[in-house]
Amino acid sequence: MVEKITAYRFERLDETLSQLNREDCAIIAGGTDVMVLHKSRRGVPPKIPKPIVFINHLSELKQVYQHHKDLHIGACCTYSELLENPLIPFALKNAIKTIAAPAIRNRGTLGGNICNASPAGDMLPLLYVYNAKLLLRSVNGNRMVTISDFIQGPRRVQRFHNEIVTEIILPSVLEDSHVVFEKVGNRNADSIAKVSFAGSIRISKDRIDDIRFAFGAVGPTIVRSVDIEKKLVGKTIPLDGADIAAIGSAFDKIIRPIDDQRSTAAYRKTVALHLLRYFLSMKQYQPN
């Protein structure tokens, strides 16, 4: 039985957007999530219920550039390409290196990781910490949305079917900040995060100027709380034990992980809080 599949591969972004305006399509960048999501049992090709639009070749979606203080990353840059790019911050590269294995990194894209909206998406905690914004384009024009507004839940994003995420924008790239990312997986490659943590801190004259943290794989979306972060602004480094404990128990209340085939809720929560406290207990922070 031969099944017909409609697939589009336009030379330019505007043609692609026109087609998306005419028809609800499945967008494939690297395909590393879409192909798995629609996988069939052995011997049967994946079943993608909509026409397919390939976008990974579009040069408009592969640019990386600095504009004022913001870093613009094309949504279809593959992880391997980002690893090679001198504009990409060191912390982001560290996170990329924890993703899957080289073959997947040659296909997978930053935009894909965002639009797949997995609670365990490896790039997401850092993008939340960077206050990443997404540029969406359609035939009607452009709009900008923050990553935390864009991602609504597991595999749920605020994208209209005629839109494409074209750029990821990292405002002012946390230049003077100390940024960390820790992924806890069941092994050193090809693993899905059990817990992940991203943190950034900027200090001037021993006082905290700006501090952010985000947790992955401990809830339906990345957990970040600006309100909790604010409590630390202005405090002196090193933080005292009571402050650290207060932040820990504030997150204890909002982190609600689950048991699944990869780990337990208790483990996820304990480790998430450990990584947070470890980050807060550091004696000194170096901008990186």
């Binding site: 069941n186 050193n188 490659a189 090809d190 693993s191 899905i192 085939q261 990869r262």
Partner: peptide
């Protein structure tokens, strides 16, 4: 039911 969930060692392990 998948290799990544079960987690046998990779070359990095």
């Amino acid at each position: 039911k998948s290799i990544s969930d079960y987690g046998p060692p990779t070359s990095l392990d």
